[in-house]
Design a protein around this nucleic acid. Structure first.
Lengths: 83, 83, 83, 83
DNA sequence: CTGCCATTTTACCGGC
DNA sequence: GCCGGTAAAATGGCAG
């Protein structure tokens, strides 16, 4: 790489490449997921239903976490913090 | 307005203005909401908690709707549709 | 409602509901806006370009207001307040 | 698991869990990426600009690959396959 | 001024 | 193959 900006340029290049590497891995996972849906479809399951089930499970988990977060807020607000 | 593009320009102008009008109303509502939070805070309630409560209620409603959507999918998939 | 926290709980509930009501109205407006974009699209206009136009107009309006605010500042500072 | 649907239910469960597992990994990578941006920001680089750089590089890579695909198409059509 | 949250924009995926 | 809707990313705004 040309030495424009000296060390900073090297550092930036390094950050960029780390990110690009991670994004490649992420993309690969997305493809894996697509493959599983395709396989399931080949076995007779409807991807549409599967997606809905997964979305629902995720939402329920998220809702549960929010419940807990809210409880935390209350306890803190009321000075009932443990520890 | 200059007659660039003839009728189309008038039409476009009309659409743009309708949208701008609606966005103003939307912005006004956002400010109203902010005001309510401020008022509540003045009465001793923590906006942070209030936001969490509201988010949670919204999520629960959403989860309920997803439940129903899933049920619909199942009934359709199994040919159990009513009517 | 259970009497947890007494009057405060009632007040909180009232605030929450006011906000939820306002947010519903806000959401309805967002949908109206979407509808106008869809209608425009059906008439041959590209929503993406329309959004750019609207953003641009907003920026120009903002710039104009800043200009005016600055002018006000100066005129007041110099005791030249316009009637 | 209840024996609703017999073997099929087991299979479905298995698919769902495989997908959820993959999505968790994907989410973890997304967080890693966020972390790198944060680290870069702490070193004085602007994430917003970095994103633009990455997008640009991706586009260039894409353009290059299209170019190569086109070249392949032509060479094959002309029986000029490169070894 | 920094991190967080909402909104907006973009990309993907399934249906027609 | 396009189009519509839905999920992810990114930007902007706001509170602390």
């Amino acid at each position: 790489m040309a030495d424009v900006g000296g060390i900073a340029a090297e550092q930036l290049k390094s950050f960029i490449e780390r990110i690009e590497r991670l994004e490649e891995e992420k993309k690969a996972l997305a493809e894996d997921i697509k493959d599983v849906y395709a396989e399931a479809k080949g076995t007779g399951f409807e991807p549409k239903i599967m997606r809905q089930v997964i979305r629902l499970r995720k939402m329920e988990e998220h809702a549960r976490k929010e419940q807990e977060a809210l409880l935390d807020l209350y306890t803190h607000a009321l000075g009932l913090d443990r520890g």
